[in-house]
Amino acid sequence: MTVMQETRSSPGAFIDFSPDATSLEVRGFGLRYGDKPALDNLTLRVPRHRVTAFIGPSGCGKSTLLRALNRLHDLNEEVTWEGTIRLEGQDIHAPEVAVAELRRRVGMVFQAPNPFPMSIYDNVAFGLRLQGRMPKRRVDDIVEWALRSSALWDEVKDRLRASAWSLSGGQQQRLVIARTLAVGPEVLLLDEPASALDPISTLKVEELIRNLKSSLTLVLVTHNMQQAARVSDYTAFLQDGELVEYAPTDTLFTNPRLARTENYITGRMA
């Protein structure tokens, strides 16, 4: 990790990356639901083509932060925010940024699988079709590629026209990942993607995450310490809307700097 360098310039963030290794940069970001604060003055950088995990107790703001990264809060009129978030150096809240295009570039997978009530094929092709007309062959190719990338192809290749709701929970979640991959995102946000799945499906999804990081920047929110330890390269610990500690995963789990982090981790790991 040559580009990594330790800095103490910003409060709470104990690692930093050089600008060309950074995919997402959050600076002084705060967010409120109505008059209830959810995130407070967060600053951190997410490295490109790595898996970054956000951990922390329920209500600490980790999901809120994740949703802020592709502006899913836009729909909620109660939400107000301050600070900046940059994707590849560009402010995502800038007026010239089309939010739909931003969300294409920053894909998101949710806690519960949410396939649309259409066929498997149509689910994967959904995002492609939004981008304009495309030759059928090309759509076929991308659908196959996306399903292969999410390790689902062999299970569904014979029933692409079947309803997506007929799949098992784990298959549905991988379908949702495939659907997101198909539109060619640069960043993939995963909001507790395995929390609704059985152990075997969970392992499959985790393996998928590890495979995807060669071509994608991944951000994973999870409750599960072992999962964070298993799949992520860097881990950020959030509490009460603040970033407490941010370090390479090995360091954070074996040798946390702060007592707050250690208490949480040991409490949860035990």
């Binding site: 899913l72 969300r103 997101t180 539109v183």
Partner: peptide, 11 residues
């Protein structure tokens, strides 16, 4: 989640 799923795909 259905609405969010569509939005997250860039709709």
């Amino acid at each position: 989640s259905q609405r969010e799923g569509a939005l997250a795909l860039g709709a």
